[in-house]
Structures are given as structure tokens and as C-alpha cells.
Design a protein around this nucleic acid. Structure first.
Length: 506
RNA sequence: GGGACGGUAGCUCAAUGGUAGAGCAUUGCCCUUUUAAGGCAAGGGUUCUGGGUUCGAGUCCCAGCCGUCUCACCA
């Protein structure tokens, strides 16, 4: 028998013994006088003398994370919601039942303690137990108390243990919650309302990605998990909700990496009567303010480098290609050349990249940009003006119709946001969809599908509008210094493990 | 999908091709202000799985499974 099972059987036996003695091992609730966090705030600075004079009565609870028994007395540490408090129990300070219970407690058990506060000889604030109540059993041994849980796979699979024994992990997810809160507040302050749009869609639109498919039985309807909420949010703008945002999951059936999880959280927002210039400026403020509130400063550290969200440098996509032109590729193209579609193939070839006519005009330059520049974009950078062919939902530049008013924000070498002036001309939108259709037929698996209802919505008139999506997980990585997206997603997708079923059978 | 690295006790980690170990945790005993409590003793292993090489494999080889990083794709 494995030790794991042996311990479980021992603890199971204690549980049965409690029941036999008429004690309920899983009582319904425990009313504490204050949480440990509150208690530490109230009494954390009380002196030995103050406590001795007042002997504050407390009723607290939590999980036992350390046990040091000394024969007829002993110490324990209680952990509740991230806060720790020491408990002191002595035989002549409690009734016989409580002392018997104390002797039978295991590391990891959940208990409630009535007693009074004092400071030990070494000065630690401690509750002197007068009564202990059993609240729930830990049947399985906890990970090692000193090193915590290190095994990365186990940390993701059993996140509850990771959270329990690795305080840093807890902090990451608390920061994530604060970050989302902070973003919501800023949108609300700007007059936005939060909405929820379908995650199951008959057409997966709004982005270029492979979707997950599913099926609704009663309607006999094939459905896609959404790859973006974009087309629904813009329908709302048509409907007169001028400022809307949504924070929710997108699903993309693509690779998994330190920057990609199949389901990820996107903040997406649209404001009417606005354009991409407005959003670039507002995004810069949004990021700076969020960094200040979550990380305490606009300057954060990520993968060993300092990143300052106090300012975003701005570069057009084509300027970025020139700026990061590789030394081995000969002379960089002139600004005129990179604006000349006839020279795109030659420019790509000089960098050793293949020109694909089917991808559409300018698509090669985007690939070139990602190849040359993206890894260098560590400091927050706004890249603006993208080719129309890769942006079927964005509005063209007035003076250059083959390019659109679109920007992306990069930081830490990752794309964290993407926004544009929305295309609101239904006829032009139909032509763009048809171009996508042609690209799809030419073999581009990620070409955008034609959404007739969306065109119909645009036909009712959508005001000039700007919209943007911000990758919440990646922003969270940056603000918490996490180098993998899995460290900011509570339950990242893993291949399921089979041992559990085998264990259950045993 | 490619490449690199890894999988040993519940956890954290050791172990020249030669008897699988330590710390924490567990069990028993001692211990009424300890805190990585301490002392004495004990138990705990299909070394990821399956093949192969060898007198002998945790260690070397092959295949598979799982994971991490990385490249590709992508946000």
C-alpha cells in the first residue's frame, strides 16, 4: 500500500472514531468573531502588557498548517484566507474533550478556536485556546511545508494545493482580480456599460483563428465557441449602446504556449463617435493607471527587464520594419519603397521571406514586422496603420485606402492589445467579406466568414466608432512578473491525467 | 508538429553500471512558551510504462506516455 493511501486510511479511521463518539466531523458553519486578517489588523501591534491586561476574547478558525506538540501542551499555526495566527493549547487550559481532540488533529485539518490573545515569550501574537471545534478533515497529506509544491505540473493540476502552500501564487491571483476591478472602474468612469454577448455563435467571426465547434441538440444547430465578441459588440453600438465593454473568454483552437491558452480572457470595448487616435491615447492612460494601481508603479519588472507603462512609443508598422531592418539583409528599403505595393515581394525576398500573393496586399509586411520587430518591442509600443487585407473589419485610411486605421500595443515582446477605427460602410464591409471569401478559397484557413446579419446591422447605420481588445492574461503576466500565461490562469488546459481513475478503483 | 531537458517515498531532492538514500511528512515513546521546536525509535519504493544491452540498469540504448522550456502557428 502506498503511504498516501496509508495516511488516508489512518485519517479516515479518525473520522469514523469521531462519529462513533457522537461528534460531527463536517459541521455546517462556524461563526468567528473576526477573520485572522481582521484580527491581525486589530491586535497585530498590541504589546504583551496590553494583551495581559485585557486578554481579548476571540473566536477564530482556519486550517492547521503547522503543529508542534510538547507533551501536555503544544503550538499550531492556523491559516485563514492567507493570514496566519499561532494557537497555544495546554492540557490545564482546556476541557478534556478539547485536549483529546487537539491530540488527534492532523496537519491540514480545519478547526475553530475559542480563546484569548497573548504574546509568547518570543513575542508572537497567539491565541491561548480554551475550546477547539473540529470543522473539517484533511484526509490527504499536504505538500512539504518548507519548499511548498514545486512540481509545475502538479501546481497546475492541483491548483488548490498550489494556492494553499505557495503564497506568491495566491498574490498573483489577488493582483489579477484587482487588475480586472481597476479596469472596470476606469471604463465605468468613462461612461461605459458592461455587457455579455454570445460565446456560442453560429459563425465564428471578429478575428482570424480556428474555432472550437460544438452542437446544440434541440435546434440541431452547429455552433462555434467564439473567437472574439467583436461583431456582437458592434451590433450593440448600432443599437445605441454607445460605449460598451465586455470582459470574457475567447476560445481559439490553436497551439498552447507560454503566451497562449486555448481559452483566454479578453477585454473588448467600443466607443461611438471615436476613432483610433482617441483609443491610442486612452489606452496609454488605461495601461499606466492600471499598472500604478496593481503593481504600485508604472515601472514593472518582467523577465529581468524594466518596463515602464508611463509612456508608449509609437511607430507605424512600416517604420518599425525599417527601424529593425536586419544588418544581413542589405540596405533597408527607402520610406517610399516600403509604401509601394509593387515592391513588397522584393522587400520580403531580401529578408529571406516568401511572398504569398494569395495572402493579400501588405500581408507579407505584417509577417515581416512580426518577424523583425515584435521580439524587440519590450517597452510599451503602439504600432499603427496595418494593411487592409489583414484587417477586414477596420476602416481604411482616408489618404491610403489599402491601409487601415488600426493599431496594436506591444509590451514585453508580446502583443497585448489590438484596436481600430471600425469599418461602418456596409457596402465596403460586404466587399471585404467577399475578399476574405476569396482568400479562403485560395487556401487561407483563417479567412473571415461572411456575416449577413452583421452587414444588415451596419445597413441601419453605425456611427463612426473605435474599438479595441486587450489581452487580460498577458497584461496580468506583465503586471505580476509571470513569464508563463499558465501562471496567471487558475486552471490552464492540460491533458487529463488517468491515475486518478485508477486510484479510485483501488 | 520540430528541438532541448526532465519524470526516484505523500512533498523537496540525492544516488561512478554494483545492497535505492536524506530532510520534511507519517507511526510509537519522551517533552507545559515552541516556531524549519527538540530527543529516541520505526514504517514507507513496480525508480513513469514497455522492450533491449549487460553477470548486473534508477543510471546505457530504443519506443511510448506525461510535463517544462523553446521554435513554428497564434492573441
Amino acid at each position: 500500500m502506498s503511504l498516501d493511501l496509508e495516511i488516508m486510511h489512518q485519517r479516515q479511521a479518525k473520522l469514523e472514531a469521531m462519529r462513533a463518539a457522537g461528534l460531527e466531523p463536517y459541521p455546517h458553519r462556524f461563526e468567528f468573531s473576526q477573520s485572522l486578517t481582521q484580527l491581525l489588523a486589530e491586535h497585530g501591534n498590541d504589546t504583551t502588557e496590553q494583551l495581559e491586561a485585557s486578554r481579548p476574547k476571540v473566536r477564530v478558525c482556519g486550517r492547521l498548517i503547522a503543529l508542534r506538540t510538547h507533551g501536555k501542551a503544544g503550538f499550531a499555526h492556523l491559516l485563514q484566507d492567507g493570514a496566519r495566527l499561532q494557537v497555544y493549547t495546554r492540557q490545564d487550559g482546556v476541557d478534556a474533550d478539547t485536549f483529546a481532540l487537539w491530540k488527534s488533529l492532523d496537519l491540514g485539518d480545519l478547526v475553530g478556536v475559542d480563546g484569548y490573545l497573548f504574546r509568547t515569550r518570543t513575542g508572537e501574537l497567539t491565541v491561548h485556546a480554551e475550546k477547539i471545534e473540529f470543522l473539517a478533515k484533511d484526509l490527504r497529506p499536504l505538500p512539504e511545508k518548507w519548499h511548498g509544491l514545486q512540481d509545475v505540473e502538479l501546481r497546475y493540476r492541483q491548483r488548490y494545493l498550489d494556492l494553499l502552500v505557495n503564497p506568491d501564487v495566491r498574490q498573483v491571483f489577488i493582483k489579477r482580480a484587482r487588475m480586472v476591478e481597476c479596469l472596470r472602474e476606469q471604463f465605468q468612469a468613462r461612461g461605459y456599460i458592461e455587457v455579455e454577448t454570445p460565446m456560442m455563435q453560429p459563425l465564428a467571426g471578429g478575428a482570424a483563428a480556428r474555432p472550437f465547434t460544438t452542437h446544440h441538440e434541440a435546434l440541431d444547430l452547429p455552433l462555434y465557441l467564439r473567437i472574439a465578441p467583436e461583431l456582437y459588440l458592434k451590433r450593440l453600438v448600432v443599437g445605441g449602446l454607445d460605449r460598451v465593454f465586455e470582459i470574457n473568454r475567447n476560445f481559439r483552437n490553436e497551439g498552447i504556449s507560454t503566451q497562449h491558452n486555448p481559452e483566454f480572457t479578453m477585454l473588448e470595448f467600443y466607443e461611438a463617435y471615436s476613432d483610433y487616435h482617441v483609443l491610442m491615447a486612452w489606452s496609454e492612460q488605461l495601461l499606466a493607471q492600471t499598472a500604478r494601481r496593481v503593481a504600485g508603479s508604472t515601472a514593472i519588472e518582467f523577465r529581468g527587464t524594466n518596463i515602464d507603462f508611463g509612456h508608449c512609443q509609437r511607430l507605424s508598422l512600416r517604420a518599425a520594419i525599417l527601424k529593425f531592418w536586419p544588418a544581413g539583409a542589405g540596405a533597408a528599403p527607402s520610406p517610399d519603397a516600403i509604401h509601394d505595393p509593387a515592391q513588397e515581394a522584393a522587400i520580403l525576398q531580401s529578408c529571406g521571406m516568401v511572398y504569398d500573393r494569395a495572402a493579400g496586399e501588405g500581408a507579407g509586411l505584417v509577417a515581416l514586422f512580426e518577424h523583425l520587430a515584435e521580439p524587440h518591442l519590450v517597452q510599451p509600443t503602439i504600432i499603427y496603420d496595418f494593411p487592409r487585407s489583414v484587417s477586414p473589419l477596420a476602416k481604411s485610411k482616408a489618404d491610403e485606402p489599402a491601409w487601415v486605421e488600426r493599431f496594436e500595443i506591444y509590451a514585453g515582446g508580446m502583443e497585448i492589445a489590438n484596436g481600430y477605427s471600425e469599418l461602418n460602410d456596409p457596402d465596403e464591409q460586404r466587399r471585404r467579406f467577399e475578399q476574405q471569401l476569396a482568400l479562403g478559397k485560395a487556401g487561407n484557413a483563417e479567412a473571415h466568414a461572411v456575416d449577413e446579419d452583421y452587414i444588415r446591422a451596419l445597413q441601419y447605420g453605425m456611427p463612426p466608432t473605435a474599438g479595441e481588445g486587450i489581452g487580460i492574461d498577458r497584461l496580468c503576466m506583465l503586471l505580476t512578473g509571470s513569464s508563463s500565461i499558465r501562471d496567471v490562469i487558475l486552471f490552464p488546459l492540460l491533458r487529463p491525467q488517468q491515475e486518478l481513475d485508477q486510484e479510485a478503483e483501488a
